[in-house]
Design a protein around this nucleic acid. Structure first.
Lengths: 136, 136
DNA sequence: CGTCGATACGCAACACGGTTGCGAAATAGG
DNA sequence: CCTATTTCGCAACCGTGTTGCGTATCGACG
């Protein structure tokens, strides 16, 4: 299923902005910041900053992408063609700041929360060095 | 060990700003934003915004406090009198945004990372409703 | 294929958290 | 008390993200 089909399936208008942004996210091997998205489609299309934000928000709203809050206080976006998995793990590189989604990780946790605390979602964040930054 | 002693122990000058900020963090039951710290010591001392940021940074540098990145992209600070524990869990309230540190939680994880990825620190983030926001 | 209403886009301005530079004030040691 | 060094406060700045509004575009229908 390509970008246009996904957009149409979400009952949204197919516009160059949406097509290009979603395609970029689908092609990305990791979560991208708005700036990285802009850079990746810069030569072909020059999107307005606001349009890009709104497009990304729309994709998240339609569950075609999901948002990750990084350590540097910038949102990163990731395509989620099959819908977002409930328990998600992220690898956070402490050197370059890139965020990778780690699939196939089931944290079997025995949680004891303080009384009257109610857990909805569990997110596991692993900090370390990614392949590109690993000196070994 | 009180605030002044901790500061002196870190070979830093004992100033009203540091004393009050560290005392505030030590008294806090959860991680505080810079704004919350400012509000808590507002009636007594009115610190400059920059001074507060620098003081908090200094405390983090001296390992007297640690920083948590919340979902709203603002730093929250927590006193860590005994040094920062390596594996730390945070409870993140999805309604009021408050962050609580959960101690005594050892995530026994069988991690399989992609090749050449090197994990340094594992952070577990639990999202849900805190006691104050829990309708039950 | 042309028209029209709903929607998306682009521009400008704004909001907010956080940072930097620099001169003035306060600290700690002699 | 005096002085060197550190810290404070002010002002200005930066980047991410948001809002309002007029204009352009999509796509449905005739």
């Amino acid at each position: 299923m390509n970008a246009d089909q996904l957009i149409r399936h979400a009952h949204g208008r197919v516009t160059p902005a949406r097509t290009r942004v979603l395609t970029t996210l689908l092609d990305a091997e990791r979560a991208l910041t708005h700036l990285e998205v802009a850079e990746r489609l810069a030569p072909a299309v020059a999107l307005d900053r606001v349009t890009l934000y709104r497009t990304l928000d729309w994709l998240v709203e339609q569950a075609l992408a999901h948002r990750v809050a990084g350590e540097d206080r910038t949102w990163r976006f990731n395509a989620s063609p099959g819908g977002a998995p409930a328990h998600h793990a992220h690898f956070n590189c402490t050197r370059c700041g890139q965020i990778f989604c780690i699939e196939a990780l089931t944290p079997a946790l025995a949680l004891q929360l303080p009384p009257d605390f109610h857990a909805q979602q569990i997110e596991l964040s692993i900090k370390g060095l990614c392949a590109g930054c690993n000196p070994a």
